[in-house]
């Protein structure tokens, strides 16, 4: 149980990475990237958790809080992630317009012409 969260993180990371590398479809690759990035979020947030603690918002009654720092880092990382995705999707739309395909191998073929 001590490491279960981290094992799931690894499983998700590898699934995401596999999708990015093995799939031909450009949209699918981005979904893989999203899974990979979310796995990183889970890693950080798991590191921050203190069992028996509460959300890091000060109240009179609470004495034990989870760590706010990784939360802050991941807030930033989520925003960076969605910004990257938006740009990537814009590129996908234009690639579809320019090549008539969003499959990796087909675009490679047409690039050479």
């Amino acid at each position: 149980m001590d490491f279960f969260n981290y094992w799931v993180v690894i499983a998700l990371m590898m699934t995401g990475l596999y999708i990015v590398m093995a799939q031909q479809n450009l949209v699918k690759k981005l979904l893989g990237l999203n899974i990979f990035q979310t796995a990183i979020f889970i890693l950080y947030i798991s590191v921050a958790k203190v069992l028996g603690g509460t959300a890091p918002i000060y109240t009179e009654s609470a004495t034990l809080y989870s760590n706010p720092l990784p939360h802050v880092l991941i807030l930033t990382a989520i925003v960076v992630g969605i910004a990257t995705m938006a740009l990537a999707l814009a590129l996908v739309v234009r690639i579809h317009g320019a090549y008539g395909s969003i499959e990796d191998d087909e675009i490679r073929d047409r690039s050479k012409q």
């Binding site: 990015v20 990237l33 990257t84 990537a88 590129l91 996908v92 690639i95 320019a98 690039s111």
Partner: peptide, 17 residues
């Protein structure tokens, strides 16, 4: 050229990884 879009996408994937 249209390859610029493809190059940008490829670099985006690798760079993000």
């Amino acid at each position: 050229q249209r390859q610029a879009l493809w190059a940008a996408y490829q670099y985006l994937i690798v760079g993000t990884i």
